[in-house]
């Protein structure tokens, strides 16, 4: 494997990024998609993927968003939006739902992030701002529970600083838990040996490496 550089194009758009994450989810996997952008990954899974979606509020076999007559106030996702059930779905209470997560029974979860560190620490629940009301939801349970944690985010903040950092400065969600980082400019694999760049989009490896404080290797 070597780094694939997609040049002669710009960075990935939001939908393109969701499609790339969907591409890398193994067939038949049990998957939890976090609130917000990760939820859109579901729209890009092939019809025959066999992927079974888990929602933290007690369901396996979650289907697409409910429309019109399908809307049922008793059937919502983690973002509290109405969804549908697929054949073979099941319901369970909250302690079981999180036991499923914490017990390592989910193959992949996809989360957003403020920062990811070189060793896979995740910060995605709290900015640490003094007036911010802390709210963690299921983020910490997912971060340490799923067999693989995929994070999707923009690589650079609005001020141009990288969100892949040597050490997280925001409050942590979980330690050494992120296995893959999907960004608009590059896809990173994280492990005990450090950070490797699997793909770049609209930027070459050398320029990317020069813009990061975290040492990265060609994949």
């Amino acid at each position: 494997m070597s780094t694939v550089e997609h040049l002669g194009r710009g960075p990935l758009g939001r939908e393109e990024l969701a499609a790339v994450v969907a591409r890398d989810i193994p067939r038949g996997a049990f998957v939890n998609l976090g609130i917000g952008q990760p939820t859109t990954v579901a729209d890009h899974l092939p019809a025959d993927s066999g992927v079974i979606l888990h929602t933290e509020n007690g369901m396996l076999g979650m289907g697409p968003a409910a429309k019109g007559d399908e809307v049922d106030p008793d059937l919502i996702n983690a973002g509290k939006l109405p969804v549908t059930e697929l054949p073979g779905a099941s319901y369970f209470h909250h302690a079981d739902s999180f036991a499923m997560m914490r017990g390592g029974h989910l193959d992949v979860c996809v989360l957003g992030a403020y920062q990811v560190s070189r060793r896979g620490d995740l910060a995605n629940w709290h900015t640490g701002a003094p007036d911010a009301i802390p709210a963690v939801g299921g983020a910490m349970d997912l971060a340490i529970g799923a067999k693989q944690v995929f994070v999707m985010m923009t690589l650079f903040a609005k001020d141009g600083t990288a969100k892949l950092v040597p050490e997280c400065t925001y409050p942590l969600t979980g330690l050494a838990c992120v296995s893959r980082l999907y960004t608009d400019q590059a896809i990173f694999h994280l492990g005990p040996d450090g950070v490797t760049v699997a793909e770049t989009y609209g930027i070459g490896f050398d320029e990317l490496a020069a813009r990061l404080e975290v040492p990265v290797r060609r994949g």
Partner: peptide, 18 residues
């Protein structure tokens, strides 16, 4: 919360259930 009129204990969702 901002007026300091309520205490808050934030617990991860699965830990809350467990």
């Amino acid at each position: 919360y901002r007026a300091g009129e309520i205490e808050l204990e934030v617990v991860p969702q699965g830990t809350l259930a467990e």
